[in-house]
Design a protein around this nucleic acid. Sequence first.
DNA 1: TATTGTTATACTCTATAACTATA
DNA 2: TATAGTTATAGAGTATAACAATA
Lengths: 151, 151
Amino acid sequence: MVHDTNECARELLDVVPSVMRFIRTEMRRHRALGLSVPQFRTLVYIERTGGTSLVGVAEHLGLTPPSACKIVDGLQGRQLITRTQSPEDRRMVTLQITSGGKQALADARGETQKSLTSVLSALSQHELLAVTRSMEILRTAFTGERVHANS
Amino acid sequence: MVHDTNECARELLDVVPSVMRFIRTEMRRHRALGLSVPQFRTLVYIERTGGTSLVGVAEHLGLTPPSACKIVDGLQGRQLITRTQSPEDRRMVTLQITSGGKQALADARGETQKSLTSVLSALSQHELLAVTRSMEILRTAFTGERVHANS
DNA sequence: TATTGTTATACTCTATAACTATA
DNA sequence: TATAGTTATAGAGTATAACAATA
């Protein structure tokens, strides 16, 4: 039914920016070792791959290479990642997370998740499962990725 | 169960930014009469209230007054809203949408919704309903607002 | 020639601080 | 004194265009 697809799109357009704003605000609030949302996502990806390139980051995050370059600049400046020339193809850089980066990631993840968890505690068990399941549906639809089995 | 709340928070933190990036990219892509996401949300709010103040905008969007002021500057510069001094309290401004603003809103809404709809068309009827319902749950949880009966 | 990455430039969003005008 | 709004300033995120180095 076309109607339901449109309604769902309208809801996404209305609600997703609100949740996003909450996430940004929370991340900004705990910014002692704080990460912005793009920095956070970039770091997550670099950690997960264990050694990606700049183009890899750009493609994964849906950014242009210059944008990815600037975010990587910031992370490297704070020594959260290393950026080395690849031995095989000297045009490429290899990006890897440092122990400091892992720590910052754990902190940001923990603090922001705690704030989200507190909001979500108002939901019933049933609602919680519905939202969790919907996130999995949206992940598949918008990124083509399946859930990775970690944590 | 605490576990489910945490898992849900982790999913939100992972998936919401992806969907948000899609929305931003789409809005940017159709930017003939295009609006950024904050401009879009501001315009939606001004339309819905039919005459709000700058502080009203700031509070609704979770922005500081200077941030709201700049976004309003941009909308006014493109003649999508009017900004008049309130007769009752001359410190206040009254923000109202223009016919051009309504048009821009309809265009942005239509184009971006079309792109979202196209992605959502891959979902089953059941999944679609689950996502729609979850958006309503999240709207209530993150904004305290109930669905308004329009459109 | 094509690809990887970078630099230059510009615009939007966002904040804090300091200010004006009005109440 | 308190509130509504603005201006000044600064930093992050994003883009396009142009470039260098390597393949």
